[in-house]
Amino acid sequence: MYSQGLNDKNLETAETPEFLAAFQARIDADEKIEPNDPMPEAYRKTLIRQIGQHAHSEIVGMLPEANWITRAPTLRRKTALLAKVQDEGGHGLYLYSAAETLGVSREQMTEELLSGKAKYSSIFNYPTVSWADMGAIGWLVDGAAIMNQVPLCRCSYGPYARAMIRVCKEESFHQRQGYELMISLCMGAPAQKDMAQDALNRWWWPSLMMFGPPDGDSLHSDQSAAWKIKRFTNDELRQKFIDATVKQAEHLGLTVPDPDLVWNEAKNNGNGGYDFGEIDWNDFWKVVKGHGPMNKDRIAARTRAWEEGAWVREAALAYAEKQKHHTAQQAQG
């Protein structure tokens, strides 16, 4: 909302030390920032980047699962998968709208995604080679996404926080349907259980990378924490995810593909937590920089959708224009 008004407005704010201090004081008092409020340019830019990336991730995230809709083994699984992919489309739209309140246009964001200027979560650059991947994605990828997103419901920027509340409410089913699918496979024939183990082997490490680089190497963390855009660090959330997920893997009778995984009583202030092996950050950066197995396919698919949909957008606008004329003429006649 308000974005069209904002487009005409001069967004430059006079960033005197007093202005920045007053803004920080509002954040510190847990006040929410709303679209037309004065805000530092860097706060606006950070949010446009983060919400845009998040929206792109939802939209690109439809592709790996859409790959299996026609081959779902039962009608029950097919309806669940369809509903999940449709939700992801919806989540992308909530988030694009939230970003637009900051003065960026939908067209501009789409252009940045297709040109490679804007990033999306690197997890979606891996292929979905077996049906078990639908289980592993729901369980691990959505599980990690939820871990990341729940704190964003309290983000200082109002429209982002409100969008995240909706997203989180809807996403719980995504994780549960994935885990249920894994249970079915693990209770099935040995070949089915092998399929589930293979999916866990391939998705485990990329899921841990979804929390972003280690705290020491994270570019945006400190300022985002001060602005209450980010409430926990990458490493804190990653640890939380591992501690929650290992038990779930044990319940399935599957083995987490990390020989260094071991319970450590002393972790988490004495509450215990898992020590885990080294994450291959070279692989992460390789995928982020565009050299993952599916980067080219994903952008090609989005570009095709955008270009092949152009005539629909043009026709709808032309029709709307014609109807307006029609109504105006009738009013005159």
Binding site: M1, A83, G90, L93, S97, A163, R313, A316, Y319, A320
Partner: peptide, 25 residues
């Protein structure tokens, strides 16, 4: 109650999109 926004060419498409985007449950 206000629940969000969307893009659409005209009122009919806006209503249909609102139904798809904001009332799936």
């Amino acid at each position: 109650r206000h629940c969000g926004s969307l893009h659409a060419a005209d009122a009919t498409l806006a209503l249909q999109a609102a139904r798809d985007v904001y009332t799936r449950r």
